[in-house]
């Protein structure tokens, strides 16, 4: 089962999105701040990370930079999620190393399309994290 790490500090957002993803057949693991997100990614090696950008302790940009600097996690696709609808946010997220970007409220079909596209690209890549090579749900 594809494992998605959702890094989100807002409890309601975390609850809502994780429920929706689980209904679609994903395994969802959770982190509540940027540092927690980095630690969880390193220890659990998810297939994909959904990263809120406005996070306490360590913001999403810095957390992504650290994930992309770490050999064990650098190939894990990261999708930035933010409630800001700023065009500059997209560039900032991609600059930090995010592989894609989406805004809240989440349009689930759109987000699922991005998730699947990144998972497919990661599966096609020669050196991906072990679980990412498994079939999508």
């Amino acid at each position: 089962m594809t494992k998605i790490l959702l890094v989100e500090d807002n409890e309601m957002n975390r609850d809502m999105l994780s429920r929706r993803l689980m209904r679609k057949g994903y395994q969802v693991i959770l982190a509540t701040d940027g540092q927690d997100g980095v630690d969880t990614a390193v220890s659990q090696l998810p297939d994909l990370v959904l990263m809120d950008m406005s996070l306490p302790v360590l913001d999403g940009w810095e957390a992504t930079r650290r994930l992309k600097a770490e050999p064990a996690t650098r190939r894990i696709p990261v999708i930035a999620l933010t409630a800001h609808a700023m065009s500059s946010d997209r560039g900032k997220a991609l600059e930090a190393g995010c592989d894609d970007y989406d805004t809240k409220p989440v349009d689930l079909p759109r987000l699922l399309g991005k998730i699947e596209a990144l998972l497919a690209a990661a599966a096609a890549s020669p050196s991906v994290s072990p679980s990412a090579a498994e079939a999508a749900p």
Binding site: N13, M16, K104, V106
Partner: peptide, 14 residues
Amino acid sequence: LRTPLAQIIGYTEL
């Protein structure tokens, strides 16, 4: 304002 809106929309769709 988008934050609670996102929750309203998301939970309703659920």
